[in-house]
Each structure stands twice: as C-alpha cells, then as structure tokens.
Amino acid sequence: MVLRVGFVREHFSTPLLQFLDADQGKTFTLVECPSGTGQLIKRLDGTEEPQIDIAMQTCLALLYSALTDPLISGIANGSKAYKLCGSYVSTPLNWAVITGKDTKYQSIDDLKGTTIGISRLGSGSQTMAYVMALQNGWPTEELKFQINNDIRGLLDSVNDGSTSAFMWEWFTTKPFVDAGEGRFIGSVPTPWPSWLIAAHPSPDRAPVAAVQAFLSKLSEYVQAFEGAGPGRVEVVKAKFGYPEEDIQAWLKTVSYPQDCLAIPTKVITDTLRVLEKAGVVKAPASGFNVDDFVHKDVVRLT
C-alpha cells in the first residue's frame, strides 16, 4: 500500500522531501496542503479532497505531520478523524505576528480588540492567536477572526485593512516581509514542541505496519539531517531558495526527535493545559485521558 502523506511545503519538511527523493513513490506519496494544519485535518477526515492518510506539518495523507496544538485540540473537541502516531520536530515554533506594510499597528499591544486573520478554523494560526491573547491578558472570548485560507490571502487582508495582523512561522513569512509586503511587529513561540504526526485510525487507510515502517524510516532521515552539519544549509537552500543567513538562523532554533515513533506524554498534557487556559478546549469532568489522543498500536508514549 502507498500511503498518502499530507504536508506543508516549508523548510521543516526538508528531511521528508529527502526521504521522498530516495523512495521515489514506492511506499508513500506527498499531498501538498498550502493552507496548513486546518486543511490537513479536513483531508484526513475526508471533508476535502484529495484525502490523505498521514498528516505532517509537514502533512501525511492518511498520515500527517502537523502543528501540535490544533492536532491535540481537534481530538479534545471530539474529532475521530485521526490519532497521534509520532513526533516530527521537538523544538518550539516561532510564530511571527505580521501586519500590513502601511498600517497603524506597531506592536502586539495594538492588536487588542481587532480582527485577526487566520487560515482556517482550528488552524495553528487561530490557536496561537488565543495563546497571544492569553499571554497579554486579553479576554479570549472577545477575539475576532477572518478566514483567509493561505499566506497570500492573509497578506492581502492585512494590506486591504480587513484584518489587523496574522500569525505564521517566522522564516516562511520573512521573504514576503523582505519584499515589502508586510511588517513584523512581534513573535510568539509555541509553549510546546512544534510538530506531531497523526494518522487516520482506520487500518484500511493507514495500516499499522505501513505507518510504523514509514515512521521508522523517517527517523533515519531526520537524524541524518540533524547530523549533516554545515551541509544542511545547501540542502535547504536547494529545496526552498532561502538566503543562507536565514537558513543558518533557523537551523540554530530547530531540533528533530531521535525516534519519530515516540511522543513524550508531557507534550500532550502541557499542551492541553495551555489550550484549556486559552479557552480552546474544555476538559471533561473526569479530566483528559492521554491514551485517547494516541494511536496506541503505533506510537510509544515516553
């Protein structure tokens, strides 16, 4: 069986793309999801085509690697479309706060009470807006959002005035800021490791053996990338065309796991605690059960 792996074409996906180059589509294919984690989830649950089996945010179709927070909040809020099955990036994600090139907004403080652009409902861009509000003492129930689908829609919205700002990964948006299409007015790192991997729970979509084999091999590629030293700069530059200084700055901030088939229990519990404070999820009377979030036949909790 060839797994359909959803992903977002960002520098984080470099080891995955190296894996694809070697695999040549024998065991998996990639499905690009430019709108991010919200789109990954919709393609996992079958409400948007093409479907995927694994999500990585990077995204796997019937497997997918995606942002930690919307994956966990989706399950906490009742989604049965996927279970967590592994880890992809073990360091936090630095979310830039971007406004239009000529707007009045000069800092995060200026955004209180305004309309924030997001890619999709339930996306990382929305979850992190809640985290930003929580960190600044704003009432999360008063946040206002406008859905703009992708980076182009988000940039258009801050420049036409329909939104005040949006949040997206720093180095992904930097080329647009460098080109004068927007301005950075702050950043908010995630209070959790940035990427987990999720798979559809059906054995018809994502057979356990196939998922385990994929993640085991992916572990080899992320560790090879970790150990490649200065050579990593040229690899990322060839894949994405970013300036060398930006790649070097990013590489100082990112780390991948030793084993993609393991998830630290603390990642799930800490993320749920922050999401509950932000009002994104609500714990049942009995509290959250970590086992409800993971594909127990695939992943190892540590």
Rank of each mutant, 00 (worst) to 15 (best):
residue 70 P to D: 04
residue 78 G to N: 07
residue 93 L to D: 05
residue 81 A to W: 14
residue 93 L to V: 12
residue 70 P to V: 00
residue 58 T to G: 12
residue 77 N to D: 06
residue 55 A to T: 06
residue 96 A to G: 15
residue 57 Q to G: 09
residue 65 S to Y: 07
residue 75 I to K: 11
residue 100 G to D: 00
residue 54 I to F: 15
residue 54 I to T: 08
residue 83 K to E: 08
residue 65 S to K: 01
residue 80 K to W: 08
residue 96 A to D: 02
residue 97 V to M: 13
residue 88 Y to K: 01
residue 86 G to M: 11
residue 69 D to K: 00
residue 58 T to K: 07
residue 99 T to H: 09
residue 85 C to H: 04
residue 97 V to C: 12
residue 78 G to R: 08
residue 81 A to L: 11
residue 88 Y to T: 00
residue 65 S to P: 00
residue 77 N to H: 07
residue 57 Q to S: 05
residue 65 S to A: 14
residue 77 N to R: 13
residue 92 P to F: 14
residue 86 G to K: 07
residue 86 G to W: 11
residue 59 C to M: 08
residue 56 M to A: 07
residue 88 Y to M: 11
residue 98 I to P: 01
residue 55 A to W: 03
residue 86 G to T: 01
residue 59 C to K: 02
residue 85 C to F: 04
residue 70 P to W: 13
residue 76 A to I: 06
residue 65 S to W: 03
residue 71 L to P: 07
residue 100 G to S: 06
residue 60 L to E: 03
residue 99 T to K: 09
residue 99 T to E: 08
residue 54 I to A: 15
residue 100 G to M: 08
residue 60 L to H: 05
residue 61 A to N: 12
residue 68 T to Q: 11
residue 66 A to W: 00
residue 57 Q to K: 03
residue 78 G to A: 06
residue 66 A to I: 06
residue 56 M to L: 15
residue 100 G to Y: 13
residue 82 Y to F: 15
residue 67 L to D: 12
residue 62 L to Q: 06
residue 91 T to K: 14
residue 57 Q to R: 04
residue 79 S to F: 14
residue 88 Y to S: 04
residue 92 P to G: 02
residue 88 Y to F: 15
residue 88 Y to G: 03
residue 55 A to Q: 01
residue 80 K to N: 14
residue 63 L to H: 02
residue 57 Q to T: 02
residue 68 T to A: 13
residue 75 I to Q: 08
residue 93 L to M: 12
residue 83 K to W: 05
residue 97 V to P: 01
residue 84 L to H: 07
residue 61 A to M: 10
residue 96 A to R: 02
residue 70 P to R: 05
residue 75 I to G: 06
residue 57 Q to F: 15
residue 57 Q to N: 05
residue 68 T to R: 13
residue 88 Y to W: 14
residue 95 W to T: 00
residue 79 S to D: 10
residue 76 A to E: 03
residue 54 I to Q: 09
residue 96 A to W: 06
residue 62 L to R: 11
residue 58 T to N: 10
residue 57 Q to A: 11
residue 92 P to D: 00
